[in-house]
């Protein structure tokens, strides 16, 4: 039971990062491999604002600041850098994001050092017991916030004009131009949104684990989660994240160390063989 809850919590973090992958993939058909590093940056910005040896702001003030900073960063990344690659191959964009990931990693190392640090958040380190099960408060927060964020995103994409326009622009970019949807701005807003989601994932991750600039490499596992769920499906991303989050602790418990570490990727391979589009994928059909 304890394994389930901590697995779910970790899975939620993977799921949130995976959602960031999916958002950008759907909009621009490029994979942002810096997504994990954006999460790491979000976590470090919060840490830098909150922790005593840096700015020592109250946690509840630094969280919104960090989230909005990451939102702006996402917007600027797209409008200043990624957009210039317009018309280049997708591969070029992907490599660019990998490079950006490295930049983010070393930048974070230069500012905050390479040693693991923990975020002094009011929710970290507490736990309570139900009979003999120990449940950490951060885990409850992680699960709760992920669920509410998913609901918010769902309502946003299904009901608001901007959300539907984002879907429209990702399904048929040309038609979106014809309809007078400002596609470039919509794309930048999607990057902003994925920056925000990354920041939230980072804050949640940091309130459970210690972080260092290499934490962003977690993004690779989240990418596996996104692929398992079906790149292009937000609920799929969350599902894939949960799946990987659950597989990890159980494999670690019942299998030998190295083999256990293979398990998430083994699942990825199996799913790619038997359901190449992922578990929940939207198969698009276009008629002429």
């Amino acid at each position: 039971m304890q394994l389930v809850i901590s697995g779910l919590a970790m899975g939620c973090v993977y799921g949130l990062i995976a959602m960031g992958f999916v958002l950008i993939y759907k909009a621009t058909e490029a994979v942002n491999f810096a997504q994990g590093d954006m999460m790491m940056l979000g976590a470090f910005i919060t840490l830098g604002l909150t922790n005593d040896q840096y700015m020592a702001l109250p946690f509840w003030i630094s969280v919104p600041i960090a989230i909005s900073l990451m939102g702006c960063l996402g917007y600027l990344l797209d409008s200043l850098i990624i957009r210039r690659m317009f018309g280049q191959s997708q591969l070029a964009v992907v490599i660019l994001t990998i490079a950006l990931g490295f930049v983010a990693r070393f930048l974070a190392g230069a500012i905050w050092g390479h040693d693991p640090q923990s975020l002094e958040s009011p929710i970290s380190g507490q736990y309570f017991r139900i009979s003999d099960i120990v449940i950490g408060v951060p885990e409850i927060w992680i699960i709760g916030i992920t669920i509410s964020l998913t609901v918010v995103l769902f309502v946003f994409f299904a009901k608001t004009k901007l959300g539907v326009a984002m879907q429209a622009a990702s399904q048929n970019q040309m038609a979106a131009y014809y309809m007078g949807i400002p596609v470039r701005r919509v794309n930048s807003l999607i990057w902003a949104l994925s920056g925000i989601v990354a920041a939230i994932a980072g804050i949640l991750f940091a309130s459970k684990n210690a972080i260092d600039p290499g934490t962003g490499l977690l993004g690779i596992k989240a990418f596996a989660a996104a692929v398992i769920g079906g790149l292009g499906s937000l609920p799929g991303a969350l599902l894939g994240g949960l799946l990987i989050g659950l597989i990890e602790p159980f494999a670690a418990r019942y299998l030998e160390g190295d083999i256990a570490r293979i398990m998430p990727y083994l699942v990825l391979v199996l799913i790619l063989i038997f359901r190449p589009h992922g578990i929940l994928s939207q198969v698009q059909k276009k008629k002429v």
Partner: peptide, 26 residues
């Protein structure tokens, strides 16, 4: 000025009504 493009260019996995509403985006 609206342009009804060659080959229709619909948004395939939005509903018909959502498609129509997108026409009124501006």
């Amino acid at each position: 000025i609206t342009h009804v493009p060659e080959g229709r260019e619909v948004f395939p996995i939005l509903t018909v009504e959502e498609n129509l509403r997108m026409g009124a985006y501006s």
